[in-house]
Amino acid sequence: MTTKKIRVLFVCTANAARSQMAEGLLRARYGDRYEVFSAGTRQSTVSPHAIAAMREIGIDISHHRSKTLDEFTGQSMDIAVTVCDRAHQVCPVIPFAKKTVHYGFLDPHTVQGSSEDIAGAYRSVRDAMAAWIDDEFGAQKTV
């Protein structure tokens, strides 16, 4: 007998970094229990910095593409997680999700400085997300 996976959608503004990294992390760590997606309130492109930060820990998101929430209309999600404050303001409740939660992470795209400063910001967000995902999804919890 197969167990139905819990469907999780991560949402940020542009679906370029935070939601993409969260999707990759949850799928890599707990993909046996969760079917994972990501979307934005608007479409962009996946950040090369996010791809590089994830590659450093052995997770390949280079095949991901930026999507909008409209692509998921008509589908049902068990949990939607807004991972940025702006997406949470625009969509405090995702109508096609049974439950919407918010956990905001720093926008690494706004960090200025050297290439190492920027890479460090993406690593920091990645690591904070990984810890949160382990806490919230790792112990059979469903936020």
Results as ranks from 00 to 15, higher is better:
A119L: 12
E56F: 03
V36K: 09
G138E: 02
H88L: 03
A121M: 01
V11N: 12
R86H: 15
S76C: 10
V83Q: 05
V11R: 08
I59W: 03
A50Y: 01
W132G: 03
L25I: 10
T45V: 08
A17N: 12
A130K: 13
P108F: 02
L26E: 03
M77D: 09
R18S: 01
H109T: 01
L106Y: 05
M54Y: 05
D70K: 13
A28K: 10
A80Q: 06
W132F: 15
D107F: 05
T73S: 12
K141H: 11
T82F: 15
A28D: 04
C91H: 15
M77K: 12
E23M: 11
I79G: 05
H109L: 06
A97H: 11
H102M: 09
V101A: 14
F10K: 06
V143N: 11
S115A: 09
F72R: 02
K5S: 06
S115R: 08
F137V: 03
A53P: 07
Y122F: 15
Q20G: 06
S19H: 10
I133G: 04
A80K: 13
T68Q: 10
A22W: 14
E35M: 05
R33E: 00
H88G: 11
F105P: 02
D135W: 09
R29Q: 09
I59R: 02
F72D: 08
V8E: 10
A22S: 14
E23C: 06
D134H: 10
E116D: 14
A53G: 02
G24L: 09
G40P: 07
R27F: 07
I118F: 07
F37M: 05
R126H: 00
R65G: 08
V93W: 11
F37A: 08
V143T: 10
A14P: 00
Q140D: 13
H102Q: 12
N15G: 05
V36S: 11
I133W: 07
I59E: 00
L25S: 08
V93K: 15
R29V: 00
I61S: 01
L25E: 07
D107G: 00
D117I: 00
E136F: 05
R42P: 00
A22P: 08
R126V: 00
A39S: 13
A52G: 05
I133Y: 09
P48Q: 12
P108C: 01
D85I: 03
K5P: 06
A131Y: 12
Y103T: 04
V81K: 13
V125P: 00
A14Q: 06
A22T: 05
A119T: 05
S47P: 01
M21L: 11
A52W: 10
D60H: 11
R18Q: 10
G31I: 02
A87F: 12
A39Y: 14
D60M: 13
V83Y: 12
H49A: 02
D134T: 12
D85K: 14
Q89W: 07
G40E: 04
V111G: 01
I61K: 03
S47C: 00
T41A: 08
K141A: 13
F137P: 02
T3A: 14
